[in-house]
Design a protein around this nucleic acid. Structure first.
Length: 552
RNA sequence: GCGCCCGUAGCUCAGGGGACAGAGCGAGUGCCUUCUAAGCACUUGGUCGCAGGUUCAAAUCCUGCCGGGCGCACCA
């Protein structure tokens, strides 16, 4: 267990024992031992006295005093490196630990070999995270890019926290949209051969189909069925999407295809099962799902009057198929414009008797690009649509990932392109990366000066007591807990916030504490601290998928 | 009308039961003959949308309202 978690556990135990001794007839309420925001409030703070006040029938501060009186003295404190305890504020018990209590962090980072953030809270549970899943009808856009950054970082965080997480992309390569894509491509081929461009109703006017039309025309007969046009277009567009994603550092483990779900006859099976379970009814020549019985606002059509499935049938079938693969949790990252579909899919799954409570749907809110203080209006019709590739050309992978991951997924965000592309101090990406580059430079120069990074065991217990050193170690100690929280809350942006704090602590240390030229024990201890900070930074940036440059 | 998300500093956003609410940008002032100034230190700036409720304790949880975004097809 990580040092911070260990100490917190020991503090809990000591406080609980002290409280039991002071108030033998009182059942202990739930309480927390947390890290106070304010340094003056000690290393750890506990709310036990305030929580106990009513049952102990004494004012909180008196309860706190009584507990503190029962805490083990320094001699007996082998379990907890307690310096002193103090009653403060409305009745907090603040614990001040003996200097050096954080030193074990350095050893932990060293022996973890890049897996310092790892914890076991996930318990090996299997999670499938589906994200992006853009329609294969055109290039990826900026919102897809945000989803990619989020989903990929979430998978990384989950895996670090002890889950077994995998990524998946669902390809809608069937149905009406698919057919219209084929018709759009065919229209482009006709245009290429001198005809008039006649796009179908709801077709795809994007120019990206032109090179595809050229390619198609050279290898296929013009009278090929629409299916063939569509399959060709999807195959090429998907390839381009994969390239964009790869460039962004996102590689999916699984691609699931709607066409495959249909080939297997899953939609038919779903409809039959829902019908057999009595969750359907017929009206106006269509077959409906009684989804209101499962909390949906309206009942929904499953099979249209013309005998075709609505899109939600393969959707339900796909989710049922995912459950069938044995995952403990399914996570869908959806664009918020699709949130209306969630209830009916859930209803269908519930109707099939599947454990819908294990399906988590996270909604990816919109992104607005801001350039020169003005929002960049993006419209597919107006031709001002910005693709993921164009966006990455301008912003770069590191800045794009970092910026997207600074915000929670469930808030719309303004992406300030000017700030993200500025190569200067005010850009948070560089701030963090610069900390890493600085450490690397320091380590290089130390090596040239003949200074070797010592083993953690060689560092004296009273070393590294400068406030900036302690603050840096504390930040390092917090990583495993931060990653656990990010994984559990499905909130990788917490790691980004953490990265900024860690970088800040290092910059502070760097400015206040010199390494090269200091007395040997100090220089050695600081060198180890810097090296450990470097390792933690690398790991943190790795969770975000952002690079850690050695020089800037 | 119904549903989901969001209202925190001039702007963009963290903080999601604890003690005087934070960062970046913006505005202003210092610090490079010593390990990267893409840095550090300081100043400026907030009835945490409003009103109730729960709690020893609410920006944080609950309810209602107000404001903004997005959905509400036998399109996907």
């Amino acid at each position: 267990m990580a040092i911070l978690a260990q100490i917190q556990q020991k503090a809990r135990d000591s406080l609980a024992a002290a409280a039991a001794a002071a108030f033998p007839n009182v059942t202990l309420p739930a309480f927390v031992v947390q890290r106070p925001r304010e340094g003056a409030h000690g290393d750890l703070a506990c709310n036990l006295a305030m929580a106990m006040a009513s049952v102990a029938r004494r004012p909180p501060r008196q309860v706190a005093e009584a507990i503190v009186a029962q805490l083990p003295g320094p001699a007996a404190a082998a379990a907890l490196p307690l310096g002193r305890a103090e009653v403060a504020g409305p009745g907090f018990i603040n614990l001040f630990l003996r200097p050096g209590w954080l030193l074990p962090v350095l050893g932990e980072v060293r022996t973890a070999h890049g897996a310092y953030a790892r914890s076991a809270v996930g318990g090996g549970r299997r999670v499938l995270v589906e994200f992006v899943s853009a329609n294969p009808t055109g290039p990826l856009n900026v919102v897809n890019c945000r989803a990619a950054a989020f989903g990929d970082a979430l998978v990384r965080c989950l895996n670090a926290a002890g889950w077994r997480a995998e990524s998946e992309y669902y390809v809608n390569d069937a149905g009406g949209q698919f057919r219209r894509l084929g018709e759009s491509l065919r229209a482009r081929v006709v245009e290429l051969q001198g005809g008039e461009l006649e796009l179908p109703e709801g077709g795809y006017p994007g120019e990206y189909l032109i090179p595809l039309a050229e390619e198609f025309a050279t290898a296929h007969p013009t009278d090929a069925p629409v299916e063939e046009y569509a399959r060709f277009a999807v195959q090429r567009i998907l390839l381009q999407q994969k390239e964009s994603l790869a460039r962004f550092g996102v590689v999916f483990q699984h691609y699931a295809h709607e066409s495959r779900i249909r080939e297997l006859g899953e939609p038919q099976r779903v409809v039959a099962a829902l019908r057999a379970a009595g969750h359907t009814f017929e009206r106006d020549g269509a077959l409906w799902l009684r989804s209101t019985a499962f909390g949906d606002n309206d009942d929904r059509v499953l099979v249209k009057r013309d005998g075709e499935f609505t899109y939600r049938v393969p959707d339900i079938a796909y989710h049922a198929e995912k459950f069938g693969r044995g995952y403990d949790v399914l996570i869908d990252v959806l664009g918020q414009d699709h949130h209306g579909d969630v209830a009916s899919v859930r209803a269908g799954l519930e109707g099939l008797g599947l454990p819908v409570d294990r399906l988590e749907v996270l909604l990816n809110q919109l992104v607005r690009l801001v350039r020169g203080g003005e929002t960049v209006r993006m419209s597919k019709r107006g031709g001002t649509f910005i693709s993921m590739d164009e966006f990455l050309d301008e912003v770069g992978t590191d800045a794009a990932r970092f910026f997207f991951l600074m915000r929670t997924i469930d808030t719309h965000m303004d992406f300030d392109i000017d700030l993200a592309t500025r190569q200067a101090s005010e850009n948070p990406v560089y701030y963090v990366q610069y900390a890493h580059a600085r450490i690397c430079s320091l380590l290089r120069q130390a090596a040239e000066a003949g200074l070797a990074v010592p083993a953690p065991s060689e560092v004296a217990g009273d070393a590294l007591q400068h406030p900036a050193e302690a603050a840096l170690m504390l930040a390092m100690a917090e990583l495993p807990e931060e990653v656990r929280a990010a994984a559990e809350a499905r909130a990788p942006h917490r790691v980004t916030t953490y990265a900024r704090v860690l970088a800040e602590r290092f910059h502070n240390f760097y400015v206040q504490c010199r390494v090269i030229g200091e007395a040997a024990p100090t220089a050695a201890a600081r060198l180890l601290l810097a090296e450990a900070a470097r390792a933690v930074l690398v790991e943190t940036l790795g969770l975000l998928g952002v690079s850690a440059p050695e020089r800037m």
